[in-house]
C-alpha cells in the first residue's frame, strides 16, 4: 500500500506541476467543473491505493452487459471446431 500511495502522490504532484498555473487562473464554474472532474479520479485512486473491491464506473456498465454477453458467448462456445 505504501508504494501505491507514494506513486499516487507522485502522479498528483506531477499533475499539480503541469496544471497548477492554469488551475490558479480558474474561477467560478470552471473551477467547480475541474473539481467535479477530479472526483472520479480521486475515487479511482482510492480503489487503487486501498486495493478496494469497489465498483468503478466502467465496471457498472460491464455488470449490466455481463449476463447477456456471457450467455451469448456460452451459446456460441458450445459449437465445436477442429
Amino acid at each position: 500500500m505504501t508504494v501505491r500511495l507514494g506513486f499516487s502522490v507522485v502522479l498528483f504532484a506531477a499533475l499539480a506541476v503541469a496544471q497548477g498555473a492554469s488551475i490558479k487562473k480558474m474561477r467560478g464554474r470552471e473551477l467547480w467543473a475541474f473539481a467535479l472532474l477530479m472526483l472520479p479520479v480521486l475515487y479511482q485512486d482510492a480503489i487503487y491505493v486501498k486495493q478496494a473491491d469497489w465498483p468503478s464506473l466502467p465496471e457498472l456498465m460491464g455488470l449490466l452487459l455481463k449476463t447477456p454477453a456471457t450467455a451469448l458467448d456460452r451459446l456460441l462456445s458450445s459449437g465445436g471446431h477442429g
Binding site: 502522479l11 498528483f12 499533475l15 503541469a18 496544471q19 475541474f34 472532474l37 477530479m38 472520479p40 479520479v41 479511482q44 485512486d45 480503489i47 487503487y48 486495493q51 468503478s56 466502467p58 465496471e59
Partner: peptide
C-alpha cells in the same frame, strides 16, 4: 491529464 490519470488508475484496477 485528469482523464489520463483516471485511465491509469482504471488500468491497474479493472
Amino acid at each position: 491529464y485528469p482523464l489520463a490519470l483516471m485511465c491509469f488508475f482504471l488500468s491497474l484496477t479493472l
